[in-house]
C-alpha cells in the first residue's frame, strides 16, 4: 500500500509551519520504507488533491485554527477540516477537489484512507521561523499520532 505523508505550511509564517516541522521530525524518526513517501507542500484545495493522485493512503499534517488551545492535536477527516490549507479562497476546498478529481478519473485514495492531523496554531500572522512555545511542544504528540496511523495499517502490522 503506497502511502503519502504530507506536511503543509508556510515555513516563514510562525505556527503555520508546524506541519512541515512534524514531517521533518518523522523523516528523522522513520526508517526509509519504499512504500512511504514523506513530503512537504504549501497548497490545499486542488493542488492538495493533485498531490494525492496515485497513493492508496494519505496522511496530511497541517496547522489549524478551530478555536481550541494552541498546541492541541486532532485527527480529522477530509470533510471535517478546519486546517489552514485544505481550503483557500483562491481555490476550492478539499472535499470538492477530491470529488472533482474522481469525476475526472484520477486515481485517488478513498476518503476513509485520507487522514488529517491538525495542530492548533497560536500565531499565523507574524513572519518568523520560530514556532510559539505551545505549538513547539505539540510536535512529539503529532508525530506519535502519525506513527500510530501508519501502524494501524493492516499491511504494516502483518
Amino acid at each position: 500500500m503506497k502511502c503519502l505523508i504530507l506536511g503543509l505550511g508556510n515555513p516563514l509564517l510562525r505556527d503555520d509551519s508546524v506541519g512541515l516541522r512534524v514531517v521533518q521530525e518523522l523523516q528523522r524518526k522513520l526508517a526509509p520504507r519504499p512504500e512511504v513517501e514523506i513530503s512537504e507542500d504549501y497548497w490545499g484545495g486542488l493542488r492538495l488533491m493533485e498531490r494525492m493522485v496515485g497513493f492508496d493512503r494519505v496522511i496530511v499534517v497541517d496547522a489549524m485554527r478551530s478555536g481550541g488551545a494552541p498546541g492541541t492535536v486532532r485527527r480529522l477527516t477530509p470533510d471535517s477540516v478546519p486546517t489552514q490549507r485544505s481550503a483557500s479562497a483562491h481555490d476550492v476546498n478539499l472535499p470538492t477537489a477530491l470529488r472533482l478529481g474522481r469525476m475526472a478519473g484520477a486515481k485517488l485514495p478513498p476518503d476513509e484512507r485520507i487522514v488529517l492531523v491538525g495542530v492548533e496554531a497560536g500565531d499565523v500572522e507574524t513572519f518568523s521561523e520560530e514556532l510559539t512555545a505551545e505549538v513547539q511542544t505539540a510536535i512529539p504528540q503529532a508525530v506519535r499520532l502519525v506513527l500510530a496511523e501508519l501502524g494501524a495499517e493492516p499491511e504494516e502490522t502483518a
Partner: peptide, 10 residues
C-alpha cells in the same frame, strides 16, 4: 497578499 488560509466556499 499572504493570508493563505481562507475557506473555499466563502
Amino acid at each position: 497578499c499572504a493570508t493563505h488560509t481562507l475557506p473555499g466556499q466563502m
